[in-house]
Design a protein around this nucleic acid. Sequence first.
DNA 1: AGTGTTGCTGCAAACGTTCCCACAATGTTT
DNA 2: AAACATTGTGGGAACGTTTGCAGCAACACT
Lengths: 327, 327
Amino acid sequence: MAATIRDVASAAGVSASTVSRAFTAPDLVGEETRGRVRDAAQRLGYLPNRQASGLITGRTGNIGLVVPDLANPFYTEILKPLQSRARGADYELVLTDSEEDPELEPVLVRRLAGQVDGLILCSPRMSDEQLADLPAGLPIVTMYREVPGRPCVLVDYADGMEQVVRHLVALGHRRIAYVAGPRGSRAGALRREGLQAAIGRSDAELVEIGHHPPHFDGGGAAADPVLASGATAVIAFNDLVALGLLAMFTQRGVRVPAELSVVGCDDVAITAMAGVPLTTVSVPFARAVRNAVDLLLATIAGNDAAPRPTRLPTHLVARGSTGPAPR
Amino acid sequence: MAATIRDVASAAGVSASTVSRAFTAPDLVGEETRGRVRDAAQRLGYLPNRQASGLITGRTGNIGLVVPDLANPFYTEILKPLQSRARGADYELVLTDSEEDPELEPVLVRRLAGQVDGLILCSPRMSDEQLADLPAGLPIVTMYREVPGRPCVLVDYADGMEQVVRHLVALGHRRIAYVAGPRGSRAGALRREGLQAAIGRSDAELVEIGHHPPHFDGGGAAADPVLASGATAVIAFNDLVALGLLAMFTQRGVRVPAELSVVGCDDVAITAMAGVPLTTVSVPFARAVRNAVDLLLATIAGNDAAPRPTRLPTHLVARGSTGPAPR
DNA sequence: AGTGTTGCTGCAAACGTTCCCACAATGTTT
DNA sequence: AAACATTGTGGGAACGTTTGCAGCAACACT
């Protein structure tokens, strides 16, 4: 069916080795020969068979992405830059959803191991032991999560929270609620610590509102407890939760930001599209992904890149959902 | 490094052929032998090498997805069900973004052709000629777009528009604006036709507002022309555009739905999260994807599934952004 | 004239599977 | 008792590449 390297070889009047070299190590073949080979390949529509070459080189040309939930914009946000960077490096992107199941993840990683040269792992819930247990030979870069001995890309949520607290305190808020995300989320722990530290340095107090799923509905469920807490501002685990709060506040007739300020986290694309544009902590998704891919490619290439975590800054984006504390 | 079929073979005291058969055609090998092979494989952590088997069988175990824009929720919406269905059939999902570039798409499809067993193509802008020119041997299912001779999954936008018009007319609207999407979008053409037909059957009139990019900003840009048109209701090309309109209306102090009703299209997840929950035409994404994958798998298996397009119903979801015409 | 050196090319052996064919051993028909 | 199926197994040739090695010009240095 498709043209093979031998078809090209005979069309160009050379051996298969030469054709192979013309593509993989062009400087090893004479200029004139190289031209003939290229022409013949072009004419026959030859594309090298990755499976065959992979069999020899041990490379697949794929990089994998494992995320807990493809329906969560926080994870789809990175898809575009990731795909584009991967393509730039001539890799395909293989996608996997672990369905928020920490038990499933190691299985998926192992299954994927044979089909990718490396992978980017977003795994907020997996335990440290599971993480350490992953196949050592497989290049892995984790995002938003530190793993000893592996390169990883982190985001400075603590500083983001510091900025949020300063922002709110400057607006006169003294009683601030925090709607926590799922129990056991690492990113959540980081945010919380940063938040507590920042609150400690201020003269405001923090009210923590239970654990809620990191979705829109989670925010809805948290709204009434927030109202009951007497806080004048609320910081949500992430933007979806913030949006859920916002929607429920509107339904309850509570005006944002006049009566209550709301802050999200992550700055996923839709926050800017909400009815009340959301004040939120912006995560540099594109930069994070670029870093992750670069680290991964370096690891694949064998440059055991400093497994010192890359830490990226966050910054507060003040939009319409925060304002001066009421009276 | 990793255990090969021969390692398993010698560990189990059989030949490589037998090991292979024990996995790919278990009923061809004796029960007792099969057990020994399975045990040995388990012990050695053997996983068959897909590249090697693919080289023989010509199958990769991957299915590809090509979409024009991974940052558009309309396309990421299908990711979750698609990935899950693919995994169920023991396929991996390979993702590609064509960057809204109809020229790039054929190139990407060809590049992907070698690495997937088939692909799902969302390509609203590609020309019919380009589409017909794709490699005939590659199983392809198109979504939201009809291609002669190929299986495809369509969505009955015309009927959705009919429902929208009836809804609006029933609310007393007689002058309805339509914000068109990008020139050359097939889905757009379908919506428009359905819309015009439905309007024709009613006593309302339609005002078409230029072509705008299918994003939030496109909606923002269309807002003033809509206001100037004197329409009491506006139907947007898609939900993002509707959200953009909504935001700009809020900024202009126009109350929705009291002064102006807004209707989106597609019912992507975020519409329900908007400040004013959006009335929209709901597309059965999960069903559509299930159908597409099933068609694709059938085509891959060689059951040249009736290339009669599958057409799925849409339905209007009336939320808060539509109401009685003013005055 | 001999000895390297350099630049280009071909041969053939891998890589890890699958699958056709052959070949026993056993059971079934005539 | 001969002929033929049936069942389970192994041998070995593919599949389309890459790559170590060897060969062979051509050319430069002693």
